[in-house]
């Protein structure tokens, strides 16, 4: 119990990316630029995200981390007057391919938001929501998906006796883990996390970081974070953005130990941002 609540820093270490197999350009962003109306939010982004690795986006507030993340599952389509140049591909297929339905893209790319946003439904219904909207009616499949995702989100033991209670009765940290369980219930390939721990205490944060480590075995994870320590602890690769531009993208080890850009170094060492 204490081990999970206080993750031992030595146990969570940066592992070299080369150890892990899988495609190196699983998600590939090429010369990507993005505008909200007249305002350019991203410019000239090019980076490859390898399969089953954790990539962290860091950078000062307003630099476009969320924007890029939300473009990976096209959540920004909800905003009026958006425009982009360049391309994003997942397994070689453009997400802007007219033949690709946004809905099927979003089923493959799960998302966890900064502010936990459970539905006003029971815990159970929250977790199986994605399966329900896919048309799964089979009770046994739903039950199983509910249990496995809650277990993966390290929430099962806390809620297994009250699955039918409202999700709004959970604590903030539990809600966030519920949102993670909800995002992984339909087994997406990619998990996007936008500052998932910003509203949590260190213990809940630790749990979620552990979780990310476990999820990495199955999912490719992109995480936005403001905490350098967190980026260092959980990610394999790190991208640093500044004013909508990608300044540096490399293995986390390299970024934190030996950044090639002066701006990166300044940001990491806390001299601006």
């Amino acid at each position: 119990m204490t081990a999970t609540m206080n993750p031992n820093p030595s146990r969570i270490q940066v592992r070299p990316a080369t150890e892990r197999d899988g495609r190196r350009d699983y998600i590939s962003i090429r010369d990507y630029g993005f505008w909200y109306g007249q305002k350019q939010a991203l410019e000239g982004i090019s980076l490859d995200i390898p399969e089953r690795q954790v990539v962290a986006f860091i950078g000062p507030s307003g630099c476009g981390k969320s924007t890029l993340l939300r473009n990976l599952n096209r959540m920004n389509d909800l905003v009026d007057g958006i425009r982009h140049v360049g391309d994003i591909t997942i397994k070689g297929r453009s997400i802007y391919d007219p033949g690709l339905e946004v809905i099927s893209l979003r089923r493959r790319v799960g998302m966890v938001f900064q502010k936990s946003n459970p539905f006003p439904k029971s815990i159970y219904e929250n977790v199986v929501f994605a399966l329900r909207v896919m048309g799964v009616r089979d009770r046994s499949i739903l039950d199983e998906a509910c249990e496995t995702s809650l277990r993966k989100a390290a929430l099962w033991d806390e809620v297994k006796d009250r699955l039918q209670d409202s999700a709004l009765g959970l604590s903030g940290g539990q809600m966030q883990r519920l949102c993670i369980a909800r995002a992984i219930a339909n087994r997406p390939e990619i998990l996007l996390m936008d500052e998932p721990c910003s509203a949590l205490d260190p213990i809940a944060t630790g749990k979620i970081e552990e979780l990310i480590h476990e999820l990495k075995e199955q999912f490719t994870i992109v995480i936005v974070t403001h905490s350098m320590q967190q980026a260092a602890r959980v990610s394999d690769r790190t991208a640093f953005f500044y004013l909508g531009k990608q300044i540096e993208y490399d293995t986390t080890e390299k970024i934190f130990m030996n950044p090639s850009q002066a701006q990166t170094e300044a940001y990491i060492s806390g001299r601006f941002g």
């Binding site: 599952n73 539905f119 909207v133 909800r182």
Partner: peptide
Amino acid sequence: VPRGMREASLAAGASKWQTIREILLPA
């Protein structure tokens, strides 16, 4: 209805109509 709830539903792969029926209308 909080925007987060709408986004969560869409991000889970629900269509617009499913979001309206399952999330927006009950809320």
